[in-house]
């Protein structure tokens, strides 16, 4: 076989593999949009589920997901950012800091259902928060901590060393330097990380299973100790637990979830590009 025939075969093969990767993404989107779009309506988004969830809308689940994500980020953002500042600015490279770093990487690799069990044991049972928005939000918060810590650390590392040196050389303390010089520069990266964390939290089912999610609760929550529905869990319920559900309701729910998560990620990407353009060092 001639060398460039071989080459052509190799290229075609590589291209085929790449196509195989893109294909599922496209197909998922096409199938969900095709089957889910007919269900989408103002009523679907703003009505409570009716007739054993076979009719009506998913409003309580949308609101539930909103509350859970909001709670998770309120909890995880400050802790994650402060942890990243400590790790990046204050610790020296030693066994202790390496152990912490290893722990954070491992935290990111724990299956989400384990977070669910952990949340149930700690928040629901031990702290006696019950199955509630509070328990669910805290569990989600712990799950997205690694995302926030890692992205904040990256943002801090990208701030040029000279900025810190100049500030120190002016007799400005380390804490003031971090507060007034480093954090403002790292802000875009931190915000992007936070939004990616939100996207991750919005799509998760398993951490909600035992901590907050209501099977069917066609009203809005009254306090943070109330249970609530959530879109991913609702999708799981209507797909597996309820017989004879119209297909378009399932796909409609999936479509809302996909739009929500992709939309959040897209927003993060656009924001990052915009803010990056502003900084000119």
């Amino acid at each position: 076989m001639k060398p460039h025939t071989k080459q052509r075969i190799a290229f075609s093969f590589l291209f085929l593999c790449t196509l195989l990767v893109i294909l599922p993404v496209g197909l998922i989107l096409i199938i969900i949009i095709k089957n889910g779009l007919p269900a989408l309506s103002w009523q679907f988004l703003t009505d409570i589920p009716r007739a054993g969830m076979r009719e009506g809308g998913i409003f309580p689940a949308i609101i539930g997901t909103f509350y859970l994500v909001l709670g998770a980020i309120i909890f995880a953002l400050p802790i994650g950012v402060m942890c990243a500042i400590y790790l990046n600015e204050y610790t020296k490279e030693n066994i202790f800091s390496r152990l912490i770093r290893l722990a954070i990487i491992n935290l990111a690799g724990i299956p989400s259902v384990v977070y669910g069990l952990f949340g149930m044991a700690l928040f629901v049972m031990f702290f006696k928060f019950g199955t509630s928005i509070l328990s669910g939000a805290l569990t989600l918060g712990i799950m997205i901590l690694p995302v926030i810590i890692t992205s904040t650390q990256e943002a801090l590392r990208s701030v040029p060393k000279e900025f810190r040196e100049v500030s120190f050389s002016l007799g400005i303390s380390k804490w003031q330097t971090i507060k007034r010089v480093v954090l403002p520069c790292a802000f875009p990266g931190i915000i992007t990380g936070a939004i990616l964390g939100i996207g991750r939290a919005a799509g998760e089912t398993a951490p909600l299973l035992f901590t907050v999610a209501a099977f069917y609760l066609p009203r809005l929550p009254r306090s943070i100790f109330d249970q609530v529905m959530a879109i991913p869990y609702h999708l799981y319920v209507i797909s597996t637990q309820i017989p004879n559900i119209p297909e378009k309701i399932r796909y409609g729910t999936a479509l809302v979830l996909v739009i929500l998560v992709l939309g959040i990620n897209l927003f993060a990407i656009i924001l990052r590009i915009k803010l990056r353009r502003k900084q000119r060092w």
Partner: peptide, 15 residues
């Protein structure tokens, strides 16, 4: 460091 100021190689004003 207030008493002993420093000017660096690359002009580096804050943004």
């Amino acid at each position: 460091r207030k008493k002993v100021g420093m000017v660096f190689q690359r002009p580096n004003p804050f943004a």
